[in-house]
Structures are given as C-alpha cells and as structure tokens.
C-alpha cells in the first residue's frame, strides 16, 4: 500500500513538473484547445452526416455514439497526456542509453518510465471528452443507477489499464528490436478506428481491434456498460483481462530490462 501511495505521489510530481514546463509555452494551450475542439466537432459532424441517413447504426443511436466519442476523446487524452509521451521517451531512452538514469533511481523503474513525461495540455481532451460524455448521458435521458455507474467506472479503468499494458509491451520490444519508433504510430492509426463501435466492423477487423490492438476494451465496452448493454460475463472477462495484461506486461518489462542491462554490461 505504501508503495502504491508513493507511486501516486510520483505521478502527481511528474504532472506538476510537466505543468511547469508547459506553462512556459502558453500559446500551446490555445493551439491544443483549438485542435481538440476542431477534432471533436469533426468527429461529431461525421456522426451527424451518417445519422442524416439513418436512425441506428448497428443498433447504436446517435446519442449513444456521441457518448462513445466522449469516451474516445477522454481515453485518447489520457493516452496522449501520459502514456504515449512516456513510452516514446522510453524507446528513445533504450536507443540512446538515457534509460540508465531511470534505472539508477531508488523507485520502481516501470513506474518511473511510465510517467516520465506528461503533456499537460492534453488534459483539454480529457475535459472535453468528459463534458461530451455528460451531455450525451443527459440527452440519453436514461436513468443510470449506481450499479451501472460503478460498472462503467470499473470497465473504463480496466480499459485504460489494458491499453497502458499493451503500449508498455510494445515499447518494451525496443529492448530487443532497436529500430521500432513507428510502432506507436500504428497504434495511433488503429485507435482512430475506435471512434465507431467495434460491432460494425467485419469479423477480422473486429478481432484485430479487440485482441491484437485492444482498442475495443477502452472505448466500446465501457459505453456498452453505461447504456446497460453489457453482459455480466463480458464485464468480468474485461476485468480479468486487465489483470492479466498488467501482470503480463510487468513480466515482459522485467525480461526486457534483464536483456537491456545484460546487453550493455
């Protein structure tokens, strides 16, 4: 428990450092605000164009899709804020040898590298996404009981954990394959496909987005839980999968680290 508290403390510290850094470039805030808003409006307009021709898309209503885009933006913001910049830095660190600095610090190296860079302005996405989600929920006019809220919270956290573990595994591959900078770009492209419910995709693409690049767990499944369409078994399965991913990524990280220190010694 003490270790967890310390890790949360580290995350907060890292966030503050990122904020101090970002505050030097305030113009970036406006750029990010404009870009995020435009991106959000673009996504909504895309949905609106589709729903100009139909009332339901594979069983989803327009407001449900707005909620989906809210979660898409929110989770995308979290990834863009901490996970992706830190993973990029990790891969760079392996290539240039600067990872040594993280390894010589008296804290868990995995935690350190996972929060080593924070792009504070991406909180704009988190806020916008959450705002859109709230609006969409109120428009759905559906009663959301504590059970659904808790289920949503659990599945959302599980989804983010799955994505984090997945990206950590990808970045850890850099220990063995040094020229791998673009692998995160693939994830970025695949993530874009997550702004639509994965149910509409043909089986091969659905399988890819669920199991190979697990975008579905972070976006589609949380929203399904919110609108009460999630099977209890899927909920449990998602939670178990998150735990499995977390443990698996930890193992692979340890393995990679051993390879790294072994290779450079």
């Amino acid at each position: 428990m003490r270790a967890v508290l310390r890790d949360v403390g580290l995350l907060w510290l890292s966030f503050r450092l990122g904020a101090l850094d970002a505050l030097q470039y305030r113009a970036d805030f406006f750029v990010q605000l404009v870009q995020s808003s435009v991106g959000l409006v673009t996504a909504l307009a895309g949905v609106a164009v589709v729903f100009g021709q139909t009332d339901r898309l594979a069983g989803w209503s327009q407001d449900e899709l707005f909620a989906l885009i809210g979660v898409f933006t929110l989770v995308g913001g979290l990834i863009g804020m901490v996970i992706r910049p830190s993973m990029e830095r990790l891969m760079e660190g392996v290539r240039l040898g600067t990872l040594d600095f993280a390894l010589t610090k008296p804290a868990d190296a995995q935690v350190l590298v996972s929060i080593q860079r924070v792009d504070v302005w991406r909180t704009v996405d988190v806020v916008l996404g959450a705002g859109l989600l709230l609006i969409a929920i109120s428009r759905l006019g559906q009663h959301i009981g504590p059970a659904q809220a808790i289920a949503f919270g659990l599945v959302l956290v599980a989804g983010v954990v799955i994505i984090y573990s997945f990206l950590l595994i990808l970045a850890t591959l850099a220990f063995w394959l040094v020229r791998l900078e673009n692998i995160l770009v693939i994830f970025g492209s695949m993530y874009e496909a997550g702004r639509w419910p994965v149910g509409i995709y043909p089986p091969w693409l659905r399988a890819t987005l669920t199991f190979i690049v697990p975008v579905a767990f972070a976006i589609t499944i949380p929203v399904e839980s919110l609108v009460g369409r999630l099977e209890p078994t899927t909920l449990v399965g998602t939670l178990l999968l998150a735990a499995g991913f977390l443990v698996g990524s930890r193992l692979i990280w340890k393995l990679g680290l051993r390879h790294y220190t072994g290779a450079s010694a």
Binding site: V50, T54, L57, N182, S189, M190, W196, I200, L205
Partner: peptide
C-alpha cells in the same frame, strides 16, 4: 506504417456506410 494509417480511414468509412445501407 504510414500507408496503413492512410488506408484505414477510407476502410472505416466504407464499413460505416455499408452498415448504414444495409440497415436502410
């Protein structure tokens, strides 16, 4: 990888619109 990103957009919209057409 670049190419993958470039191709995925049209494929997504292809899927969305064929789904719409079928439902209509």
């Amino acid at each position: 990888i670049w190419l993958l990103g470039l191709l995925l957009g049209p494929i997504v919209y292809l899927v969305v619109w064929t789904t719409v057409a079928r439902s209509q």
